Simulated scan of single mutants.
Amino acid sequence: MSDHECPDAGRLMLISPERVFYAGLLGRPRRRSIGGFSVYVALQGQLRLTIEGQALQAGAMAFVPPYLTHNVESDCRSVIALVIEPESVLTGPMVALGARIGGVGSAALADRVRLAYQTLVATGRREGFTTSEFDNLFFGETLPARRIDRRIACAIARLNDVSGAAVTAEDCAAAANLSQSRFLHLFKDETGVSFRALRAWKRARHLLHFVNADINLAHLAQDIGYPDSTHFSHSIRRFYGLQPRAIFSGSRDLAIWRSDPHSASIAEFRQGRP
């Protein structure tokens, strides 16, 4: 199948602290290791997925657990990708969803995701959606939410803040009235991942809010919490398999719809930046 035969209803991303839906260019990524549960859907034809250490998978859909290094290719230049943040859902139902995607129900679920995408573009719905609405639209059910200790939930909320404010384990531990070692232990128990690993992923995830903006990348790196451009480029390439400049180049006509219409405004985010 040639690229021009693939449907392209419009490049679109929905983003909230717990979910991402993306329909747009796949690019030519090298190995990537997304920090959430990843669901890939071919717009037409098939995907080819390789998870490091596993056999090649091919089909209309693919499922990858968090932080697993993988590579995905598509018959089309564009692809649909959904990301579910692991601290927001129970692991068991996500394992079941992965089995469903890899089993006999994959074709129907792929059609549902494609139809949801086409409907969003056709109706022109803009911003403002809940996690439950997102799940029901794409999966036909609300994915069971994970209950997180309120002290850890507060720390996660700080990590989800797109403002780029520095977030340290020491500060979060103090806010939770815990020793740092106890906080770090509880954090991993509650989320399934270390504080440092989740902070690195959330920082890279913040980039998604700004990929269609005309913005200086060196300034953006500092604004979302990177110490310098080298760390920024390395982190983005590790998580997404692409250099930041390549991501921005392929996202110029990407529409971004947010769960909170007032979040991540470029004007507000960069207020005071010379």
Rank of each mutant, 00 (worst) to 15 (best):
L56V: 10
L49T: 10
V20C: 14
E5I: 15
V72L: 12
V20F: 11
G27M: 13
D75S: 10
M13A: 10
R19S: 15
I15Q: 06
Q44V: 09
V39M: 13
Y67V: 09
R31C: 08
Q46V: 05
P86I: 15
M13K: 08
R32S: 05
P29E: 09
G53K: 01
Y40H: 12
L56R: 11
G24W: 07
Y40D: 12
P29V: 07
R31F: 06
I51G: 07
G10Y: 09
C6K: 01
D3I: 07
L82A: 03
R48I: 02
G35E: 03
F63Q: 07
E5R: 15
T50N: 15
R30C: 05
L26N: 10
A42P: 13
E18W: 09
A23W: 09
A60E: 15
P66M: 04
Q46P: 03
H4S: 13
D8W: 11
S74H: 01
E87R: 11
P17E: 10
L26H: 04
G92T: 14
P17Q: 08
C6R: 00
P93T: 13
I34W: 00
E73T: 05
P86L: 15
V39Y: 09
P29I: 07
I15F: 05
M61K: 00
H4M: 11
I34D: 06
V95P: 09
C76R: 00
R48K: 03
E73Y: 00
R19A: 15
V83H: 06
P7Q: 07
F21W: 00
P93F: 08
V89P: 01
P66Y: 04
M61A: 04
A9I: 08
P17F: 06
A81F: 08
G35N: 04
Y22D: 14
G45Q: 01
H4G: 08
P93D: 11
L25R: 07
D3T: 11
V83M: 08
H4P: 08
L12T: 07
A42N: 12
D75M: 04
P93Q: 12
L49E: 09
Q46F: 06
G24C: 04
V83K: 02
S88D: 13
A23T: 14
T69M: 03
T69C: 01
E73D: 00
Q57T: 02
P29L: 06
P7K: 07
V41P: 01
L82R: 00
P93S: 12
V64Q: 14
E85W: 04
A23I: 14
L68K: 00
D8F: 12
R19Q: 15
L56E: 14
V79F: 05
S88M: 06
V89N: 07
S38T: 15
L68E: 01
G10L: 11
A96C: 12
S16E: 06
T91A: 11
E5D: 15
Y67G: 07
F21G: 01
G27N: 14
F37S: 05
L43Q: 10
I80W: 02
A58Q: 09
V41M: 01
I80V: 14
Q54D: 13
Y67L: 08
Y40M: 11
R48H: 03
L47E: 09
L68V: 03
I80P: 04
G10E: 13
